[in-house]
């Protein structure tokens, strides 16, 4: 697990006030919503805000695109890396 992945997991657990879950319990390429971690639409809004606050990431106004970025920890890491590169 890379540092960025770990950082995102910690951010998610903290931001969403999740209980009974450790960073190690979250699988990098598992879906965050519904199956997998089982997050809901409100969690998605919160993650969006946290990404903005912590990494200065603005979501592109295209829900399809956002859905892809929010698919898993790995996808979020790619999003953060790509914005850093700019």
């Amino acid at each position: 697990m890379s540092n960025l992945q770990l950082e995102i997991k910690q951010m998610i657990i903290e931001t969403l006030d999740l209980e009974d879950i450790e960073p190690n319990d979250i699988v990098d390429d598992e879906p965050l919503f519904v199956e997998g971690l089982g997050l809901d639409s409100i969690d998605a809004l919160e993650i969006g805000l946290a990404l903005q606050k912590r990494y200065g990431i603005k979501l592109k106004a295209d829900s399809e695109d956002t859905r892809e970025h929010f698919a898993s920890i790995n996808a979020l890491a790619v999003l953060i890396e790509s914005q850093r590169a700019i």
């Binding site: 809004l45 969006g48 979501l59 592109k60 106004a61 295209d62 829900s63 956002t66």
Partner: peptide, 13 residues
């Protein structure tokens, strides 16, 4: 006709 989720969407719409 679509339902939007993120405030970023609302802004661009």
């Amino acid at each position: 006709t679509e339902q939007w989720q993120y405030t970023e969407d609302l802004f661009s719409r």
